[in-house]
Design a binder for these strands. Structure first.
Lengths: 113, 113
DNA sequence: GTAGCCAGTTTCGTTGCGGTAACCGGCATA
DNA sequence: TATGCCGGTTACCGCAACGAAACTGGCTAC
C-alpha cells in the first residue's frame, strides 16, 4: 500500500489522455499531418459518419488542437488544420504507432492461446 | 481524396491501440512499473472497483501484458507482474505522460475560452 | 425547375464501458 | 458462534460513444 493515491494526478488524468483515449482523435490528427483538409477529405478515408466527425472536430477545436476555417464560397468550403499545439501530439503518437507496429503481432498471438 | 483508406491499418487499429484507449490499462501498467503487486495493492491507489480491476487484469493477461501468480496460502495471495512485453509499453507511455504534463494546461486554457 | 454539391444537423437506436451493491469460500482470530 | 480478511463473482444499471438514415440550405449547372 505504498503507492501514492495521487500518483497519476499530473500524468494520467481521468481518461488516459485528453481526447487521446477515444476512437477518432488520434486518427484525425494523423490525417491532418500533411496539411489542412476539407470535411469531405476526412470523412472518406476515416470511414466515419458526418455526425461523429463533426462532434470530434468541434471538441478538438475547443481543446485548441485544430482550427476550422470556413470560406464563403459555393459550394461551401471548410478546412481543418492542426494548430502548433495539435502538432506537438504527432511525436508521442508516433511512439505509440511504433509500439503497435512492433508488438501487435505478439499481443494477437497471446490472445489466440 | 488522396488519402489511402487503409492508412491506419498497421498503425491505428479499430481502437487507437490495443487496450491503450481504455480508462485503466495504462494506469495498471504504471502501477506495476516497480515490481509485482497484489490485488489489494492495486485496488487502493487506483480507486477502482474489484469488478473492473478483475476484468482489466484478465484482459491484460490474455494479451500477454501481465502475469497472474496465485500462492496457495491463507488468506489467498495473488501477485500481478508485467511481462517483458508489457514492460515495452512503459516507454511510449512515458512519451504520452510527458506530453500531458507539458501541454495539458494549454488544452485546459483553450477549453476555457 | 430540377438535380447535384458541400457541409453539415436532426432523430432515433444500439452497444459497451464503467459503476454499485450484494454475495461467496476458505481460513484465522475472538 | 461469529466476525473479518482476501480475492474475487454475479446481477443489474446508467451514460456516453457510436452509427444509420433522412433532412437542410445556399448556390450552380443542366
Amino acid at each position: 500500500m505504498t503507492l501514492d493515491p495521487d500518483l497519476f494526478s499530473d500524468c494520467l488524468p481521468g481518461r488516459p489522455l485528453i481526447r487521446i483515449g477515444d476512437k477518432w482523435t488520434t486518427k484525425i490528427i494523423v490525417c491532418l499531418r500533411d496539411g489542412p483538409r476539407r470535411f469531405g477529405e476526412l470523412i472518406v478515408p476515416l470511414r466515419i459518419t458526418a455526425k461523429v466527425l463533426t462532434e470530434s472536430l468541434r471538441a478538438m477545436e475547443r481543446d485548441g488542437l485544430i482550427t476550422r476555417t470556413a470560406y464563403d464560397t459555393n459550394p461551401p468550403r471548410v478546412e481543418y488544420a492542426l494548430t502548433p499545439l495539435g502538432r506537438t501530439l504527432l511525436e508521442p503518437l508516433a511512439a505509440i504507432c511504433a509500439w503497435t507496429a512492433a508488438h501487435q503481432p505478439a499481443v494477437l498471438e497471446a490472445r489466440a492461446t
